[in-house]
Design a protein around this nucleic acid. Structure first.
Lengths: 351, 351
DNA sequence: CTGAAAGCGCTTACAG
DNA sequence: CTGAAAGCGCTTACAG
């Protein structure tokens, strides 16, 4: 049995003041004599006072403003399509508590647009923010503003360690690459070569994708059985023509490629190429449960997809902001979500 | 903007009665004239009234009694060790709302003990129950009592479709077997044989394990590349001696076994055998993240473990009971959790 | 600078 | 059978 929770009434009684005064002290609303203030604070601490969250919620129908700033999901970049769902699910679950969710999106390829949108976000008077820090410099300056205004922010998809973020929820990038490496090693004959393809549209992702690549490659010398060459190419855009040219070149020089690892979310572009060429014995491993990737997973061209639970990232982001804002619960600062190994047989559970 | 929520005050006003009367009608506390009752009910429906859960929680400090009835985790059966953690996490998260969690456990091998414990559970005046229906007949009769008393219950680990359960949260048993089949197929040379081992201590599990076996085997004719024999044995107990005898016999008759699938959670017992024999090239696939299984996963003897999120099962069980009991939210009746594919590289995320 | 009072929406005990 | 009132713990506006 935990000791009965102290109420402001208890504090008031012990301090010999009214509950109004206690409230003024607790909320730092000023207009209180310094001596009174100190006394109240001391007693509150002694009683280990924390406000009754339910009573507070009943009284103040003030809605919490949670604002997200994430890339817009476009025809060309569907990775971001599931993030909103997680936030909406969280708000629904919180239901009787009034939470406003305002979703602001920016163009994944345009720093200027991001910057414009950060201003828009600030004008919305957010109580808390969910942020994907795609553009590093711009994100840092935005985060500094947030810190100055004491607006807590949660990172998803990646984090910038130089900022004072409340929490990061997402992938352990290097390690997810390692998992992919292990899978490639398992299903590829030991003598075959392995190709890593960086399909980077925008330069911002380079760090991210490099990290995955490093993780992938790190598996082999330490634990792998594969003895083939490890090749590594970047394809500057995702036009079928470009991909064909680059891939043709690689395959001409290295006919013994047995597996391809694509570090971005567009494995299906490479799967298109492999299908057209009729290269049946090449194992593809990629990221993210985009519709087109899943189609190739089911047809067997893609063997594994690594999932990073985009929906779960934003779901937990909203929940953690809520708990911090309403109950001062401090979350785990860095929470790595599991690296999901997805095949044609278990994919249905992840949708 | 949703329309403003109706309060009992609004109903009272429209019905021309006091809020006390409205409350009596809403709570079926009787002592209300039939005409009044009907009028109040009609207006409540028209206004689409639902109680303000927060105000109710503030007023009634009645604690909710959630009781779990699960097998006891023993030295010999550690699968059940993580279920309590999920429930405790849920209760913590619900925190400001008063929830009592009482955990009752029974002996996994003893129907009589189970039955005794069901009586104990009923005496605890539970508001809702988390149940693992290991013993079918006994579980059915217990569930009937619960239904009669209008006590909602949630199944984990398995469900009995003949009962009126509120929800099931757990594995899709057949399909998880299929996933295992696919993994075995991927990592085993096409010409090798594949062995399925049923390590069943208690007969109750047979249906469960058969189901996994069926799922496993179903993969090959439809989608597999493996052309070897599929063997299937049951080992009646887990004594090293027994295992050695049985396995020796199988290997003598079938020296070309390339993979072993263990349908229960004690793959480590088979891994012990394989290690002692020095059979390096046999791939083991098993279930559940027991410590000993994980050790073999890390050392490479076990290639894959299938995870069924035991902690998540009970976590969601408590949350769903809570939401049903306090807010009448009806959950998805059958919720299959993802079949987790766990390797030595991603295991750390699942612990 | 401080206190007393009203009220959030509901539940409960009491008076009639 | 019905109504009026008190109170859950907090916040807010007002009076002094």
């Amino acid at each position: 049995m935990p000791p009965k929770k102290a109420r402001i009434k208890d504090i008031a009684l012990l301090a010999g003041v009214s509950i109004g005064t206690v409230d003024r002290v607790l909320h730092e609303r000023g207009e209180v004599a310094e001596r009174t203030r100190e006394k109240v604070m001391r007693i509150a601490r002694e009683l280990d006072y924390s406000p009754n969250f339910i009573a507070r919620a009943l009284k103040t129908s003030k809605r919490l403003n949670i604002v997200s700033l994430l890339p817009e999901a476009t025809e060309d970049n569907l990775f971001w399509i599931r993030h909103p769902q997680g936030m909406e699910r969280a708000v629904n679950e919180l239901e009787p508590f009034p939470v406003n969710l305002i979703q602001v999106t920016f163009d994944l390829l345009d720093e200027n647009d991001f910057q414009k949108k950060t201003i828009k976000v600030l004008n919305l008077h957010p109580d808390g923010i969910i942020l994907a820090p795609i553009f590093k410099t711009e994100s840092i300056s935005f985060c500094e503003k947030l810190t100055k205004r004491k607006i807590p922010f949660v990172f998803v998809d990646g984090f910038i360690k130089e900022t004072k973020f409340l929490a990061y929820i997402g992938e352990d990038i290097f390690h997810s690459g390692r998992v992919a490496g292990q899978l490639a090693d398992m299903i590829t004959p030991a003598g075959k070569d392995i190709l890593v393809v960086n399909l980077a549209r925008n330069i911002q992702n380079v760090h991210h994708l490099n990290n995955r690549t490093q993780g992938f490659l790190s598996y082999f010398p330490e634990s792998g059985k594969n003895r083939g060459n490890k090749l590594n190419i970047s394809i500057p855009n995702t036009e079928p023509e470009t991909i064909k040219t680059e891939m043709d070149r690689v395959f001409t020089q290295n006919p013994e490629i047995g597996a391809i690892f694509i570090t971005g979310s567009k494995s299906y572009k490479i799967a298109d190429y492999i299908t057209n060429k009729g290269l049946k014995s090449v194992n593809i491993i990629g990221y993210d449960l985009l519709e087109k990737n899943i189609a190739y997973l089911k047809s067997g061209i893609i063997k594994f997809l690594i999932g990073q639970r985009p929906e779960e990232q934003t779901y937990q982001g909203v929940k953690k902001l809520f708990e911090f804002l309403t109950q001062s619960k401090i979350p785990e600062r860095i929470e790595y979500l599991p690296v999901d190994v997805v095949t044609s047989e278990n994919v249905k559970f992840f949708l």
